[in-house]
């Protein structure tokens, strides 16, 4: 009975969506605001990757709000799971030698790869969010492979707070120099080189550290 009713409801929604999609043909050029960003993006921000310039320059304040949502979700997860800590079993089975050695060998390389991705965020595809996620997956590997060497939760908290603080301080410096929050006050440099695009690489490094510490802290809280 429940299944039939829900199928009927889904059918009604499906017909409505088909009528709505009739006016949106696939693959046609319907860009309006994006044209301005594509044509003037390099001149105004110095970043070659237009997506990066939209995320951190044109909509930088939006990104600050998004990072805040991430922080609040991680905080809520910590509060919900607080006090439910199982006692860590002392006889926790150690990982095999192959897994242990492989994890110790791969962990720095994964961290290096994540850092490469968020440092080059304004030149190539990638950026703070992707690099942070890769760093968090490296910490997940270290939790699974060598559980004795867990990093304490406080270090994650400190890194995450520092990342948020750098973001806000850069925005405030831009407010005092340029006249609005997160204005690009550093020299733009030559496009397509590493030291270009003003404050965008600094902001992406801050976002990368913050997202990486936050996601690793979420995994830590769930496992513990």
């Amino acid at each position: 009975m429940r299944k039939i009713i829900s199928l009927i409801l889904l059918g009604i929604v499906c017909v409505g969506i088909i009528f709505a999609l009739y006016s949106i043909p696939f693959g046609k050029d319907k860009i309006k605001v994006g044209k301005h960003y594509i044509y003037n993006g390099i001149k105004e921000t110095g970043a070659v990757n237009i997506v990066t310039s939209v995320v951190l320059n044109y909509r930088g304040f939006d990104t600050l709000g998004e990072v805040t949502i991430l922080f609040i979700a991680a905080l809520g997860l910590g509060v919900v799971l607080y006090g439910k800590k199982k006692k860590r079993k002392e006889g926790l089975e150690p990982a095999s030698l192959v897994l242990y050695t492989g994890c110790r060998f791969l962990f720095p390389l994964i961290l290096l790869f994540g850092a490469y991705i968020f440092i080059h965020g304004h030149l190539t595809p990638g950026g703070g969010f992707q690099g942070g996620a890769i760093i968090a997956s490296g910490f997940l590997l270290s939790y699974l492979g060598c559980p004795r060497k867990w990093i304490s939760k406080e270090r994650f908290n400190i890194t995450e707070s520092l990342g948020g603080l750098v973001f806000v301080i850069m925005g405030l410096i831009g407010l005092t120099i340029g006249g609005y929050f997160l204005s690009n006050f550093l020299p733009k440099g030559i496009a397509n080189t590493l030291f270009s695009a003003g404050i965008i690489p600094i902001l992406y490094c801050a976002v990368g550290f913050k997202v990486g510490a936050e996601l690793a802290g979420i995994i830590y809280n769930m496992i513990e």
């Binding site: 990757n49 997506v51 990066t52 991705i117 595809p125 990638g126 950026g127 969010f129 992707q130 996620a133 890769i134 968090a136 997956s137 997940l140 996601l215 979420i218 995994i219 769930m222 496992i223």
Partner: peptide, 26 residues
């Protein structure tokens, strides 16, 4: 959309699966 593809591959396919498996184990 290579940026989004990287984010989806590293977050959607790796971290989400890990979080679900931890939750199912508990």
């Amino acid at each position: 959309a290579p940026d989004v593809a990287m984010a989806e591959a590293s977050i959607g396919a790796a971290l989400t699966t890990a979080i679900f498996i931890i939750a199912i184990r508990r």
